[in-house]
Design a protein around this nucleic acid. Structure first.
Lengths: 191, 191
DNA sequence: AAGGTAACCCTAACCGTTAGGATTTCACAA
DNA sequence: TTGTGAAATCCTAACGGTTAGGGTTACCTT
C-alpha cells in the first residue's frame, strides 16, 4: 500500500531493460529461432526465471513497448480536443504509429517478425487486445453514442488499417485509403 | 503422380478422424489444458509422431474443419451468380458461418476455446489466413476491379464481422450491423 | 536494528514438438 | 505371385519454452 520509493524500483526497471536489450541484440545478431531463453538469460547475467518474471513469454521480449502502443491509440481518442471528430483523430494517430513502425531503424526488427510465425501470431493477438482497449475507449466517449457493436467494429477496422499499412508498399497511402473506408463505415452508423 | 485409389487413403483419413474425435472428446471431458498430446495419442492408439503427421499442433486438433471454412468463404465470392453484387453474397455466407458456430451443439467447444488463450490465439491467426485467402479471391474477381488495399481491407472487415458476431449476445444482428458498415466502406472505394 | 517482502537465484521437471531411423502396409507392375 | 518403392506408422531420445518449489539477497519500513 505504501508508495514505493527509489532504488528497488530503479533496479527492477534496469534489470528489465537489460534483459530486453540483450534479447533484441541477440535475436538480431543470430536470428530469433537460433537464440534460446537460456542464452538470453546467460548473456544478460540473470536467471531464466528472472526473464519470465519480467516477460510473459519469449515473444514478449520483442514487443517490449506494447503498452505504449495501446496507450497512444486510446489517448488519441480520449485526449482529443472536445468536439473534434473521431475519425480524423484516429487517422492521424494510426498514421503516426505506422510511420514509427516503418521507420528506417525498424526494418531489421520488422524483417525478424515477418520471418517468424510465432512472432507474427503474437503480434496479431496483441493487436486484438489493442482493438479491445480502443473499442472500450470509443464506447466510453459521451460524444459518440454509438452501439457497442459499431465501436468494436470500428476499433478492429482501425487496427486492420495499421496491420495492412505496416506490410504495404506505400504505408502512408494505405492508411489513407483504408481510413476513407472506415470513415464511410463509421458514418453509416450515425444514430 | 498416379491417382491414389482406395484403401491407403481411407485408412489415413480414418486415422486422422479417430485422432481428431478422440482429442475433442478428451478435451471436453477433462479440459484442454489437462489433456496432453501423449494422452490423446495413447487413447487414439497411435504414436505421438502420428498425431503430428496429421495435425501441425495441439491447437489444430480443435479446428479440424479449418479448410472448409476458408473454402466456403472464398467460394461465396468466386461461385456467386454472375453480376450478383459482392457484399450481399458475402453477408449471406458470413451469416451462415456464424449460425454454424453459434449453433446449439457448438456451445461447449466455444466455451473451451474462449477459456484457453492458446486456442484463442490460434483461432485469430487462422482467421488472418482466411482473410488473406478472401482478399485474393476479391482481387481476382474481374467484376470488382478495386485496389489491392481495398480488397485486403474488405476481407479483414468481413472476418472481423464473423469474429465479433461469434462472441456477441445477438450474433445475427451483429453480422447485419457490421455489414451495413462494410457496405458503406466498400462503396466508398468504387473506382 | 529487526522484520517483512520484493526481487532474484538454482534445480528439476513438464509438455509440445521434432529428429532420426526402423518397420509395417499398401499400390503397382513385372 | 512376388518384388519394389513409397507412404504411413512407430519408437526413442532429445530440444526448448515454461513453471513449480524452495532458498538467498537486498531493499524498505518501523
Amino acid at each position: 500500500m505504501t508508495e514505493p520509493s527509489g532504488r528497488r524500483e530503479r533496479k527492477k526497471a534496469a534489470t528489465r531493460q537489460k534483459i530486453a536489450d540483450t534479447a533484441l541484440r541477440l535475436f538480431l545478431e543470430r536470428g530469433y529461432d537460433a537464440v534460446g531463453i537460456r542464452d538470453v538469460a546467460a548473456e544478460a547475467d540473470v536467471a531464466v526465471t528472472t526473464v519470465f518474471a519480467h516477460f510473459a513469454s519469449k515473444e514478449a521480449l520483442v514487443f517490449e513497448r506494447d503498452q505504449d502502443f495501446e496507450q497512444r491509440l486510446t489517448r488519441a481518442v480520449t485526449d482529443r480536443p472536445p468536439h473534434e471528430p473521431l475519425i480524423p483523430a484516429l487517422h492521424r494517430e494510426v498514421q503516426a504509429l505506422v510511420r514509427h513502425c516503418t521507420a528506417e531503424g525498424s526494418a531489421p526488427v520488422r524483417r525478424m517478425i515477418e520471418g517468424s510465425p510465432a512472432l507474427r501470431e503474437y503480434e496479431e493477438s496483441m493487436s486484438l487486445r489493442h482493438a479491445q482497449a480502443l473499442a472500450a475507449a470509443l464506447a466510453a466517449d459521451p460524444h459518440l453514442s454509438r452501439s457497442a457493436t459499431a465501436c468494436r467494429a470500428t476499433a478492429r477496422f482501425a487496427i486492420d488499417a495499421y496491420a495492412l499499412a505496416c506490410r504495404a508498399d506505400d504505408p502512408g497511402a494505405t492508411v489513407d485509403e483504408v481510413f476513407r473506408m472506415i470513415k464511410a463505415a463509421w458514418e453509416a452508423t450515425a444514430p
